[in-house]
Design a protein around this nucleic acid. Structure first.
Length: 273
DNA sequence: TAGTATGTTGGCGC
DNA sequence: AGCGCCAACATACT
């Protein structure tokens, strides 16, 4: 269930595995992965070399020589993995298997099958309906305190909901926002327009700092998402209901904010203006 | 077993 | 228009 940090780690792994390599074959094992995906891969990807890998918000871009790009969204359980030695049978959750000219295989695994992959002209990638209204990337193009304050002042929506709005800034999800609001000392259900300039400024400035920490904290070759077997929780607040707050030792609370599971410290997060 | 899950879209109703 | 809420997608884990 990746957010910006996990997608960034994917981008780095894929860059390492694919850049400069030629795609030898691509096998689609689930037709729902993308419209006409097998045909598009055959035409624009197989036989082409990878020019580079980029990340925009929670989207991955694999740019191919020849002018096309594979765009991928991992949704809740999607993951790219590399097989150096090829097992005879593909693991059950495999939805796409790509073999590169070195003989290594890169697979897209996705147990819940919500992930999506598109193959489009590189120049048209940002015009995909899903991406057309995406705001600036939360890490590469950090939101200014002024822009955040302007957006917050216009709405009574909870600050948690505002930060997860991908049209305002792209890349933050439930975990990132929970952790950012803890760091900022702001209650998740605070109406956005009740926050002070000072709190919003601190929040805006902390976003790229937090994201860089989260990337570093999870950097490893194979990502295991929280909730999966063997996952390690590196987050101070997320999924720690009842555990002591790392700052004040008050038990962490759990509840729903705008329908999403939310964790917060009732002592440290009181700021509302 | 029932509840929960880190994402996104789209529909309904106020 | 903005917003809350729900369902859909489909499976794994506790």
């Amino acid at each position: 269930m990746p957010e910006l940090p996990e997608v960034e780690i994917h981008a780095r792994n894929l860059r390492d595995w694919l850049s400069g390599r030629t795609i030898r074959s691509a096998e689609v094992l689930d037709a729902r992965l993308g419209d006409d995906l097998a045909e598009r891969l055959a035409v624009a990807v197989v036989g082409h070399s990878v020019e580079g890998v980029r990340r925009v918000a929670k989207y991955l871009f694999i740019d191919l020589e020849g002018g096309h790009t594979m765009v991928a969204h991992l949704r809740m359980t999607g993951r790219f993995v590399r097989d150096v030695y090829l097992p005879i049978t593909l693991p059950k959750a495999t939805r796409l298997a790509i073999v590169i000219h070195t003989g290594e295989r890169v697979r897209f695994e996705d147990s819940r099958r919500f992930g999506r992959i598109w193959v489009v002209l590189t120049s048209e990638a940002m015009r995909l309906p899903e991406l057309a209204h995406l705001g600036p990337d939360a890490l590469l193009d950090p939101i200014t305190p002024e822009r955040l304050a302007e957006a917050a002042g216009r709405t009574r929506r909870p600050i948690k909901v505002l930060l997860m709005d991908q049209t305002l800034l792209g890349g933050l999800g439930n975990i990132c926002v929970i952790e950012l609001l803890f760091r900022a000392g702001i209650a998740p259900d605070t109406p956005s327009n009740a926050l002070t300039e000072r709190h919003l400024q601190a929040l805006a400035q902390d976003i790229p700092v937090y994201l860089q920490w989260a990337i570093d904290a999870q950097s490893r070759r194979e990502l295991i998402y929280l909730g999966e077997k063997g996952a390690e929780n590196v987050f101070p607040i997320y999924r720690r209901a009842g555990e002591p707050c790392p700052r004040c030792s008050t038990p962490i609370r759990y509840g729903a904010v705008a329908g999403r599971g939310t964790y917060w410290c009732p002592e440290c997060q009181k700021a509302s203006g």
